[in-house]
Each structure stands twice: as C-alpha cells, then as structure tokens.
Computed example of a mutant assay.
Amino acid sequence: MDTLGGAEFAPTSTYLNTSSCGLWPRRSVEAVGRLAQEIADGRPEGSGSTGAVEAARASFARLTGVSADRVALGGSVAVHVGLIAASLPAGAEVVVPEGEFSSMVTPFTTRDLKVRYAPLDSLAEAVGPGTALVALSAVQSADGRIADLPAVRAAAAAHGARVLLDASQAAGWLPLDAGRYDYTVTGGFKYLLCPRGASFLTVTEEAQESLVPVHAGLFAAEDPEGSTYGPVEEFARSARRYDEPPSYLAYHAAAQSLPLLEEIGIGTVHAHNTALAARFRVGLTELGHEPVPGDSGIVAVPGLGGRRPLLARAGIVVSARAGNLRVSFHLYNSAADVDRALDVLSG
C-alpha cells in the first residue's frame, strides 16, 4: 500500500505519530520560508497576507462541510474552548467524557460551572434536562476511540443542550460535517498538516449569539481597516467576530496544507489510514497483544506504552499515552511502515 503524499513528504524516520504532530508538506515549508525571507528583507506587507489567511479559512470550511462565514480562526483549541466557557451562564452543567483531553475540560473548571464526567460509551445517556453543553472529542486522544456522535447529538437535541466537538484528532482523515454541531474546535497541527498556531472554530448561525467575543480586536470587526483605534464599534456579522489575530507564518502554511488534503480527498485519506490501522491491529493480535478495538486510524495498545523507547531506537516515532502505545497513521505512511513497527515489536 503506497503513500498518498507523493513527493510532498520525505520523512527521515518511520513516522507514526500524527496524533501528536503532523508533518508539513513541502509546499507549506516553502511558503513559510518565503514569508520569513520577506520579513527579514523588510518588504512591504512583509508581516503576512490576509489573502493567505482567508484562503485557509475557506479551505477548512470546504473540508468540514460548512460555509466560510461559519469559521473563526485562532491559535489554539484551549482559547476557543475558553471563549465558549466564558459565554456560559454561572452554574451551567457541562457533560464531558472521562479522560477527555485537558484543553477541552480545563476552561470549564476555571469558572463557576458544573462539570460532570461520564464514560465515553455512555455519554449520551448522561445528558439530562439540566445539561447546557456536551463537550467531547470526535476521536479520543489517549486510545483512538471514535465517539458515538449521532447518539450524543440526539441526546443533546432531546434535552435542549448544545454540543461542542473537538475534531483535532479527526479532521483531516475522518469525514466530518461540522454544521451538525453547535461548535467545533480543531487544532490544525495534527492531521490537517498545519503548524501550531493555526486552529479553527466553527459556530452555527443559530448558536452564534450565544458567544461573547471576549478576546475581540480589530480582526473581529466588520470593518477591520476602520477599527484600528478605540473600541470596535461593529463586530463581524459572521463567525469571524471570534477571530484571534492570526499567526501569519502558520496560516501561510495552512493555506498550502489544507488544499493538499482537498486534492487527495478526505474519503481517500480515511480509507488509506484505516486500512493501515487494520493491518497493524491484525499484526498485533498475531503477536499476542490486544489493541483497543474499532475502526479508527489511531491504534492504541494498553500496557505497551513502555515499548516507545524501543521503537524510537529503531527510528520509529510513536507516542505513549495513558499507559497505551499509540500509533497513528496518515497519508505519508505505507504498509511497509506498519510491517516495520510490527517487526520491532516482535523482538
């Protein structure tokens, strides 16, 4: 099974760690280099291009099935979640899965909110009439499990709760319709192949008025050029009102990385990644290990996290999370990578 990235990628290791950080395609590296040189040269507009920022916004929107006016840009998932947490009324109940990633939980715990935890497999049953928000990851960071998203959406709708979905471990390989959720947040530096500093918030039109633009600056204005000094008089009528000032280097790269995923197609990436993961699960089972079951492109093996140094010495990059050995596949991986990892694990 060949890679999908072609000449865009040339890793010097067997890289199976996209759940921690995705590799940049060559075109993105070159875009960052060009902008860095322009800044060093002191050229006009050398700080960065708003055109590149808007191109990244539009590409992310297409990848996740929403219009560009539903996408706000920022620098981290934690800030997006903090915005949502700050907009909830005091005492509101937020239901989250046990073991959820800290960036999705901590902003709610720092405010006067009631945070209630439930097992991921029964999260929908934990939603009740007093729930204001259900916050969860589409794919769990620690073990790669895919949440039962239809069940969560149905439970939230039945009780009048909103849903916040973290797509950081999903967007880029798992088909996603962001418009089905009140809010989604996505760190771009994993499967979207962007640098850190590029993150995305989607807000449905109906949910938009529930958020207070607490970190608004001129980029959140309807007329940014006319809002340089003094308070912003009119916020953008779109989700752009929740924009943070962009990290131009990150977004110049994002404007190249995201179109690459569009060219290949998320459906194609999904089939590729899950096929590699299935091959790895079969091999692990033959070696006597029991991976977390499922159809995810991320494979976790409980109790095997201590093997990460062994793999690292063999030039194979993976993660250890919550005691699990976590191996994640993406478009620059091949069947040969799977077999090499299995060979090292076999001893």
Rank of each mutant, 00 (worst) to 15 (best):
V32T: 11
V96D: 00
V94T: 13
L123Q: 01
P89Y: 05
V96F: 08
S19I: 15
Y117V: 13
A86C: 07
A135D: 00
Q37W: 05
A56C: 13
I39P: 05
A72Q: 06
R70N: 11
V29W: 00
F108G: 01
L63W: 05
T14L: 09
L63V: 13
A7W: 06
V115H: 02
A7K: 13
T50R: 14
T64V: 14
L123D: 01
C21S: 12
A36C: 05
L63H: 07
S47P: 03
D69Y: 08
N17G: 12
A31I: 11
V29R: 04
R43I: 02
M104Q: 13
F108M: 12
R70F: 09
S19G: 12
V134K: 11
S76V: 07
G91A: 06
G6P: 04
G65H: 05
A10I: 04
V139M: 08
S47D: 07
E30G: 06
E38C: 11
S76A: 15
S137Y: 02
V66F: 01
A138L: 11
F108T: 06
V32I: 10
L88C: 04
A36D: 13
A40W: 05
V127K: 00
L83D: 00
G5P: 00
A92V: 08
A124M: 09
A68K: 08
G42P: 12
S19M: 12
S19T: 14
S47W: 03
G51L: 11
P25D: 03
G6E: 01
L73W: 03
V53Y: 10
S13Q: 15
D112A: 15
P89Q: 07
G42T: 13
D41E: 15
V94Y: 02
S122L: 08
Y117N: 06
A126G: 10
S47M: 09
M104I: 14
F101I: 14
C21W: 05
G99Y: 07
G33V: 05
E98V: 15
E54K: 05
L88P: 00
Q140Y: 03
M104H: 07
E30V: 15
V77S: 01
L133D: 01
V77R: 02
L136E: 01
A40F: 09
L88G: 00
T14D: 09
A56I: 09
I39G: 11
S137D: 04
G75D: 02
E54S: 14
R43T: 07
L16P: 08
G144C: 10
R62Y: 03
V134D: 02
P89A: 11
S28I: 04
V79A: 05
T18E: 02
A55Y: 06
R70I: 10
A135T: 00
G46Y: 00
E45W: 05
S59T: 10
E45T: 03
S19F: 07
V127W: 01
V71G: 01
V71H: 01
G33K: 10
G48R: 02
S137M: 04
E125S: 15
A118H: 03
G99V: 14
P107Y: 07
T109P: 00
E93M: 08
C21A: 12
A90P: 12
F9K: 01
